[in-house]
Amino acid sequence: MPQRNQFEKVQIIIYLHEGLSVRNVAHTMHVNKTTVQRIRNKWETDETIGKRKPTGRLKITTEVEDNALVQYLEQNPFHVVRAAIQRTDVPGSRPTACRRIKESPLKNYVATKKMILGNEQKQARIICALNNILRENWDRVIFTDEKVFQSTNNGQIRVYRRRRTRFNENFVNNSERSGRFSVNVCGWLSYYGPGYVG
Rank of each mutant, 00 (worst) to 15 (best):
residue 91 P to N: 01
residue 59 K to A: 05
residue 127 I to M: 10
residue 176 E to F: 05
residue 17 H to V: 04
residue 46 D to Q: 15
residue 116 I to K: 03
residue 175 S to C: 14
residue 167 F to Y: 13
residue 87 R to C: 11
residue 77 P to Y: 00
residue 39 I to C: 01
residue 57 R to N: 03
residue 27 H to C: 10
residue 124 A to W: 00
residue 62 T to E: 04
residue 51 K to G: 05
residue 14 I to A: 04
residue 174 N to C: 00
residue 62 T to Q: 03
residue 158 R to H: 10
residue 184 N to M: 15
residue 159 V to P: 06
residue 126 I to W: 14
residue 58 L to K: 14
residue 18 E to M: 13
residue 33 K to Y: 02
residue 173 N to R: 07
residue 71 Q to Y: 06
residue 42 K to I: 00
residue 101 I to A: 12
residue 47 E to I: 07
residue 7 F to W: 11
residue 138 W to A: 03
residue 163 R to E: 15
residue 114 K to T: 01
residue 52 R to W: 01
residue 23 R to E: 15
residue 19 G to M: 08
residue 24 N to L: 08
residue 150 Q to S: 09
residue 148 V to K: 14
residue 70 V to R: 06
residue 131 N to W: 03
residue 24 N to R: 14
residue 189 L to C: 11
residue 73 L to K: 03
residue 82 R to D: 07
residue 17 H to W: 11
residue 174 N to S: 02
residue 97 A to E: 08
residue 192 Y to M: 07
residue 43 W to K: 05
residue 33 K to F: 00
residue 105 P to F: 06
residue 87 R to V: 09
residue 191 Y to S: 13
residue 186 C to N: 14
residue 176 E to H: 08
residue 114 K to E: 09
residue 96 T to H: 08
residue 151 S to T: 11
residue 165 T to W: 03
residue 141 V to M: 12
residue 160 Y to C: 08
residue 152 T to K: 13
residue 6 Q to P: 06
residue 132 N to W: 13
residue 168 N to A: 03
residue 78 F to E: 05
residue 1 M to L: 12
residue 121 Q to P: 01
residue 75 Q to Y: 07
residue 32 N to F: 06
residue 143 F to A: 12
residue 28 T to Q: 15
residue 144 T to K: 02
residue 95 P to E: 04
residue 176 E to N: 08
residue 178 S to E: 10
residue 117 L to A: 01
residue 66 D to M: 03
residue 168 N to S: 06
residue 11 Q to T: 11
residue 184 N to Q: 15
residue 24 N to P: 01
residue 5 N to A: 02
residue 93 S to P: 03
residue 104 S to Q: 07
residue 106 L to R: 08
residue 189 L to S: 09
residue 19 G to Q: 09
residue 185 V to Y: 14
residue 23 R to T: 15
residue 152 T to Q: 14
residue 149 F to K: 05
residue 106 L to K: 07
residue 107 K to W: 01
residue 32 N to C: 09
residue 36 V to R: 07
residue 172 V to H: 10
residue 87 R to K: 15
residue 2 P to K: 13
residue 61 T to V: 02
residue 140 R to E: 15
residue 38 R to W: 02
residue 161 R to N: 11
residue 151 S to G: 13
residue 142 I to L: 13
residue 157 I to E: 14
residue 49 I to P: 02
residue 103 E to Y: 01
residue 70 V to I: 11
residue 188 W to L: 03
residue 123 Q to G: 03
residue 21 S to P: 02
residue 41 N to R: 11
residue 33 K to H: 07
residue 134 L to T: 08
residue 167 F to R: 12
residue 101 I to M: 10
residue 63 E to S: 08
residue 109 Y to V: 07
residue 5 N to T: 03
residue 4 R to F: 04
residue 106 L to I: 03
residue 194 P to W: 01
residue 133 I to S: 10
residue 76 N to T: 04
residue 13 I to D: 05
residue 46 D to S: 14
residue 30 H to G: 10
residue 102 K to H: 09
residue 18 E to A: 12
residue 56 G to D: 00
residue 25 V to Y: 12
residue 198 G to L: 08
residue 21 S to I: 05
residue 163 R to P: 01
residue 8 E to W: 02
residue 119 N to T: 09
residue 36 V to K: 10
residue 189 L to W: 15
residue 78 F to M: 04
residue 114 K to Q: 09
